[in-house]
Design a protein around this nucleic acid. Structure first.
Lengths: 197, 197
DNA sequence: TATCTACTTAGATAGATATCTATGGAGAGA
DNA sequence: TCTCTCCATAGATATCTATCTAAGTAGATA
């Protein structure tokens, strides 16, 4: 899967920084606040915040609010998963071939050099490919206001209303009282090879 | 060791690039020349040369001269080795012991995906493993009120009273007039391989 | 309500690096 | 020796990003 490949790349990018590696080491012992980490690493709080955001982005770290402080903890599951992918070079091979992946070829046809969507596919099958890419722009386990959803989409295409509806329609995103979030992939609508339900 | 850490960091840095990940993928299938890779990746030869130098730098790739061409191949041993280091490195990725260390395999069987304790082991040996993990949630050289102890434990399991008693019983924590602290590890109760005193 | 604390976000900057073009070097064959 | 091929190195450039300061937000407390 292309998704595996990009997950792998995101994982390596996240770990390819000394400060973040050290943060992971500290979190391995017990959960920590931003302040504690800033002290331990001799960095300013915003810098630590930035690194933690990266680590949360790959799901390796989770945050637990407690008053005004946020306790950050490691999610060892992700680590184990990544180890399995590393040992099994199938996923690495798959990554190399990702350009050959039909989905990626479809997608690259609809993106311009800035990574923006040139047009919305008419074909349902291709639309699903594009929507998969679009929903990946949103963080998992995060709640968005509608305005945030629109802004995120508009960084990729002007017609945020249309694309927002499509994401909801394909159940790639969920909505309740004006709050939006990414639907876990297992709950997406089933589509066949032609993009039909 | 710092050296292990920097090796690990170098490894992640080397893998944290899309082109290099794809090169590794292609080399996983069979050895390739610089020209072939340049063609496959749609990059110029010097760029590929640069990436191969990085991969050779961490020992992941080796080159075999043959006339004017150099055949580059993957060294799968290194990939496995890196995995082991990733799991072994105490200073940077201590948590990764969880795969190698028998204790951590026991532990992972009792933890759910949120890092909470699913149940309290009946086996004494396994209980000790779980208690070691639990006591690591507390800071060293810090004094806790009983309510704090309970809260900390309850983030991991509902039965804080039972687990608090076990920690005290195994002398992993000490108590005096309602104040608790972590016992230095040297003063824990001796246990044999079956978890008996 | 006002203030303090812990954190996040925005914006700027400096350093790293992925990629390119141009050039150099070494083996193979005439 | 001359030339061709394949690759490496040097240097330039543009993009990325780790870090900082300044400002904003939200919970806790008085």
């Amino acid at each position: 899967m292309t998704d595996q490949g990009s997950t792998l790349l995101a994982f390596f990018k996240a770990m390819a920084d000394e400060s973040r590696l050290r943060i992971v080491g500290f979190l391995a012992v017990r959960e920590r606040s931003v302040q504690e980490l800033a002290e331990l690493l001799a960095l300013k709080e915003p810098t630590v915040s930035h690194h933690l955001a990266v680590l949360r982005g790959i799901g390796l770290v989770s945050a637990r609010p407690d008053g005004t402080t946020r306790w950050h903890a490691l999610n060892p599951k992700v680590l184990r998963q990544m180890n399995r992918e590393l040992l099994d070079n199938k996923s690495v091979v798959a990554f190399a071939k990702s350009e050959v992946d039909p989905e990626s070829r479809v997608l690259s046809g609809f993106l311009d050099s800035d990574g923006r969507l040139k047009s919305i596919p008419v074909s349902r099958r291709k639309l699903v490919v594009v929507l998969k890419w679009l929903v990946a722009q949103f963080e998992e386990n995060r709640r968005y206001r509608e305005s945030e959803v629109n802004e995120t989409i508009q960084r990729r295409h002007w017609d945020s209303a249309r694309l927002r509806r499509e994401l909801i329609g394909h159940r790639m995103m969920s909505r309740n009282r004006g709050v939006y979030w990414r639907t876990p992939q297992a709950e997406w609508r089933e589509v066949d090879s032609l993009g039909r339900y």
